[in-house]
Amino acid sequence: MRLLIIGTGKMANQHANRFAAIPGVHLVGAVDTDPDRLSQFCALHKIERQFSSTEEALAWDDFDAVTNVTPDAVHYATTMACLAKGKHVLCEKPLATSYAEAAEMADAAEKAGVVAMVNLSYRNVAEIHAARDLVLSGRIGAVRHIEASYLQSWLVSKAWGDWRTGPQWLWRLSKAHGSNGTLGDIGIHILDFAAYGAATEISDVSCRLRTFHKAEGDRIGEYVLDANDSFAMTANFANGALGVIHATRWATGHLNELRLRIYGEKGGVEVQHDHRGSHLKVCLDEDAETATWREMKAEPVATNYERFVNAVRLNIATEPSFRHAAGLQRILDSASAEEAAAAARV
């Protein structure tokens, strides 16, 4: 498979390394509007062809599939151009910055008959698949309550670098630079983590967003720091469960941690994932009477990168699809609209 990489920022290195490790995948070209960054990226990953625009790469056309690692606001235009040329696409999350655009992208992908997948990267966590299997098997009974959180601390510490001086962080804090804040950046991850692990879908949510003061005038250079930093929501799930979901970049002591707790009529499941690894705990059968939790081993799963390549080779649809990501975007949009309406009433 001949692969084109669109966008050569920090996350693109992860894509390049993961795809290059898959036998039969060839990184044949890369696209970026920054010529220096593009040149350094191609030299690092031994990519021969360099393009300053997606249109230029599509005119060349000597590739089968695309991995789109551009900023959020650029996903729509670049992906739609690739779909129009019949290219298979793995797109970084979120699929778009609005449900209308995400739904249009899903329609276009289905019409083109190509593999169109979104890199919801925590689908790579084996423990979330094991939790889902437990729910589907009926081991915990009917699911009644779901609790999920995504905690980051990069606004508190410099463990990932200083956000005050790094454009790769500052754009995430500014609406004008295409960011929908914590809700749009990591909210989509924890929504998917919760719904996939609990083997259900999110029907609707009620959400509160908060943007905290971070710098003088809430601005650093060209970046107005107006994107949300934290959110807390309640959620109704299609399986009848009620849930609470929250995320923040102010979680002191948590570099990058996802947690999911699923409680059913007969048992419970907990998943924790952070930079050190993943853990699955269960409280099942007679252990429910003594509140005893036991660690459970999860079998390895294929990564999104591997599943995308296999799907392209077989020309079959795979998850998480554009349609699924559009559904998540609908929830994110409704959360943003609710907060905007509340602000207008103040």
Rank of each mutant, 00 (worst) to 15 (best):
K93S: 08
H273S: 14
G181S: 05
M233I: 07
K175E: 09
Q152K: 01
H145W: 03
S121P: 03
T8V: 04
T8G: 02
A343F: 07
G29I: 01
L136K: 15
D185E: 10
A16I: 00
L225C: 05
V74H: 12
G9N: 06
D107E: 14
M117Y: 11
S53D: 03
G217H: 12
T248N: 05
A106W: 13
H177V: 01
R144K: 13
A81H: 11
V282R: 06
G267I: 04
N17Q: 14
T303W: 02
V74E: 03
S153M: 02
Q50M: 11
V66P: 10
E216M: 02
V143H: 00
D61L: 00
G24S: 13
R37F: 00
A199S: 14
A344G: 06
E216L: 02
S39D: 14
I140Q: 04
I188L: 14
T8Q: 05
F237Y: 10
D285N: 08
V125S: 01
D107Q: 13
S98M: 09
Y263Q: 15
T8Y: 12
G187K: 05
A302I: 03
A102L: 02
F237W: 08
S137H: 10
W160L: 01
Q329P: 11
A21W: 12
D62Q: 11
W163L: 01
E56M: 10
E55V: 11
R210Y: 07
Q329E: 15
V118R: 13
I220S: 06
A344S: 13
D162S: 02
S153W: 02
L209D: 04
N304T: 07
G113Y: 07
L191C: 13
E92S: 10
V156K: 11
I245K: 01
D72Q: 08
E306Y: 06
K85I: 06
G7P: 03
D333Q: 04
V156D: 08
A65V: 06
A73C: 07
A199Y: 05
T97P: 03
V115M: 11
R139I: 12
F237G: 00
G268W: 00
R219V: 07
T211H: 00
V118S: 13
Y99R: 07
L95C: 08
N180H: 08
T97Y: 09
A288F: 15
A340M: 15
D162G: 00
L38V: 01
S53T: 01
A77C: 01
G240P: 10
Y99T: 00
D185H: 10
D229L: 01
E270V: 09
P94S: 11
A142T: 06
L95W: 07
I316M: 15
S137P: 13
H246E: 06
N68S: 15
A30E: 10
K10A: 14
L83T: 02
